[in-house]
Design a protein around this nucleic acid. Structure first.
Length: 604
RNA sequence: GUCCCAGUAGCUCAGCCGGAUAGAGCAAUAGCCUUCUAAGCUAUCGGUCGGGAGUUCGAAUCUCUCCUGGGACGCCA
């Protein structure tokens, strides 16, 4: 507990740089190399305090240190309550006496007792210098680490259903999964993006029935997803009054399973046309996949799974179906085979999980799928566990909330889905409209409008905790002010313009000198410094919103600085110093947005 | 009925590995462009943190219980 080498949970290799023998200021520099701010400063502060207070360990002090709610309370604070019992003194008195003893310390600029708190102010200049140095040294890699050491992480994302429209719901899986993949890569993992397409199942029987009865080849070719969806919706409407349609659908799907040529050709056609449409959306979102193998790919891999389950004596007959009993895990039994012998969802995911482990040798396998499927993934994991696969523990379901309409989940069957493509179009044209109004001379208008419109859609989805259900509201989304993607992009564009106009040049000098005293500069430094910790936390929690909130915070501080201080003013030296600060902000803003899957235009 | 998720300002959300006056954005009101992009900044207004009980020096945060909304719970995926 007494050495920084043991206390940090992050950045192992870089922690080796820490040496207790260093001078205090030096130590601050070294410890700041990529180690979580709070932990590090806490450690230094805790050591200092422990020199005076012997009744409590460094670790305990460190745990209690906190970042105060307001900068006027300093950079760190130590609540003295915990010492009150042992010292039999009031917390306020303890704080007072600590202030006296610690004010001689050369770690802190200032130590101040405020009520029961001991407020600690850090020496700003060395910290600022170190943060800037590190950002310039690493560039866009600032915040990255080797933590993942090349381990594979498979990420199941997007997974739209063939012949159905790409809804806002699929958007969530796509952007959340893509962002988690980006974050994983930043931390040194090899991310494998898998688009587990819904390209098999009884819905194809329904579709074929509908197409045969009411379909029109030309119309489907012109507008595949839309036409197929109309057919799908019509099927459900007509099947309500005519149950024989369901029988027909079943027989079509049976033909497909048996490899009937006509059925297979139709299936392939539906699939190809759908993929073409999906690709347009992926291009816009700037998302690509390492694997697009869908459910159909696992058709021939399910029988071996069933056999394996049988061999291992896990398969039981129940009400005519074959199941794996999971009552010891307090879960309902997992259905493996239907009465008619056909396989089910669980079977397919078992085959897919095993295939992924064999193919990619993952150390983590993530499934970015709606939270309504939590039980399903628990079952799959448990069955694999019973089969003796330890790696089942490395599978994690990453659930997210619904996109609601009037407080209800959207339904494909009733055709009430909101189409992502429509939304994207609307957002891009809003961005176009804004550009015409605000910056009519901008070059590359179309491209910028696309980046901004799409960025707004992605950010809107990633700005809140993924488990929240969100009510779809186009009016809110069309607003490009406040906590939005365009706000961050705009901040980046303004900052980039400053660099251009001011003719910023890289210099080896990373001291901020008098600029450090300007308002919001220290806030910016501290915020920039915690970026690596933010990236780590975002991956630990599989939570892109940690990055999106961070990026908003950084942008806000920058805008406040921009509003208060005229960057291009004063002496040349001063101007260059400010631009140095501006430059590091752009580096982190751009990379933060990149982690979310959003591009940052230099001008907008 | 059982299990999972959520309930914080008029609206959308942070904060929830316990700590100082509970923070943002939107909306409302009032300001700031003859000097770096006003997609911005500043200020004001706005909260019984769903209700109750418990643990604690201290609870939005932990425990229990109840209420409300959403979801899942064997042959869809």
């Amino acid at each position: 507990m007494d050495s920084p080498k043991q206390s940090g949970t992050t950045g192992k290799t870089r922690l080796l740089l820490v040496r207790d023998e260093f001078l205090f200021c030096n130590r601050i520099y070294k410890i700041f190399l990529g180690v979580e701010f709070k932990m590090t400063i806490q450690h230094i502060a805790a050591k200092e305090i422990s020199n005076i207070v012997k009744d409590i360990t460094v670790g305990e002090i460190m745990d209690k240190l906190e970042i105060p709610p307001d900068t006027s309370f300093g950079d760190l604070a130590f609540p003295c309550y915990i010492l009150a019992k042992q010292l039999r003194q009031s917390p306020a008195l303890i704080a007072q006496s600590l202030e006296e003893k610690l004010s001689k310390s050369d770690v802190f600029e200032q130590v101040k007792a405020v009520g029961p708190y001991l407020n600690l102010f850090l020496k700003q200049a060395p910290i600022a210098k170190n943060v800037l140095t590190e950002i310039f040294t690493m560039g866009a890699d600032y915040g990255s680490s080797k933590k993942g050491s090349g381990e594979s992480v498979t990420i199941d994302l997007s997974s739209p259903n063939i012949a159905k429209p790409f809804s806002m719901g699929h958007l969530r899986s796509t952007v959340i999964g893509n962002s988690i993949a980006n974050i994983a890569e930043k931390l040194g993992y090899k991310a494998i993006r898998i688009n587990h397409l819904g390209d098999w199942g009884t819905q194809f029987g329904k579709l074929m029935t509908a197409y045969e009865k009411w379909g029109d080849e030309k119309r489907v070719k012109e507008n595949p997803i839309k036409e197929l969806n109309i057919l799908y919706v019509r099927f459900h409407e007509e099947a309500k009054v005519d149950d024989s349609l369901n029988d027909e659908a079943r027989s079509w799907f049976k033909k497909l399973e048996e490899g009937h040529s006509g059925a297979t050709a139709l299936w392939k056609w539906f699939r190809d046309e759908s993929l073409k449409e999906f690709q347009k959306i992926y291009d816009l979102l700037n998302v690509s996949f390492d694997s697009m193998q869908g459910e159909a790919f696992y058709n021939d891999k399910m029988l071996p799974i069933v056999e394996e389950l049988t061999e291992k004596g896990l398969l039981l007959e129940s009400e005519g179906a074959m199941v794996v009993d999971l009552h010891e895990a307090e879960l309902p039994p997992a259905l493996i085979k239907k009465k008619d012998g056909a396989s089910l969802y669980v079977t397919r995911d078992l085959a897919a999980a095993k295939f992924r482990q064999n193919t990619y040798d993952f150390t983590q396998s993530l499934y970015v799928v709606g939270h309504e499927q939590s039980l399903h993934f628990e079952q799959v994991k448990k069955v694999l566990h019973k089969m003796g696969y330890e790696w089942a523990n490395d599978m994690h379901h990453i659930p997210f909330g619904f996109i609601l309409q009037d407080g209800k989940k959207m339904s494909t069957r009733k055709g009430k889905t909101i189409l992502l493509e429509e939304v994207l179009k609307q957002m891009i044209s809003q961005a176009e409209h804004n550009i015409k109004e605000k910056n009519p001379t901008l070059a590359n208008k179309d491209k910028v409008a696309e980046l901004v419109g799409v960025g707004a859609v992605i950010f809107n989805d990633l700005k809140q905790s993924r488990l929240n259900s969100v009510e779809f509201n186009i009016e809110n989304m069309l607003r490009f002010e406040g906590e939005t993607g365009p706000y961050v992009q705009y901040t980046y564009a303004r900052a980039s313009t400053l660099l251009m106009k001011g003719g910023w040049q890289k210099s080896d000098d990373c001291e901020l000198h008098d600029i450090l005293k300007e308002p919001y500069v220290w806030e910016l430094i501290i915020t920039l410094e915690k970026f690596p910790a933010v990236v780590e936390r975002a991956f630990r929690d599989y939570e892109p919103s940690i990055v999106s909130r961070y990026v908003i915070e950084l942008a806000r501080y920058f805008n406040q600085y921009y509003g208060k201080i005229r960057v291009l003013s004063g002496t040349d030296a001063e101007q260059q110093l400010r631009l140095t600060l501006v430059k590091v902000v752009t580096i982190v803003l751009k990379d933060g947005l990149r982690l979310l899957g959003i591009q940052a235009p230099e001008q907008m």
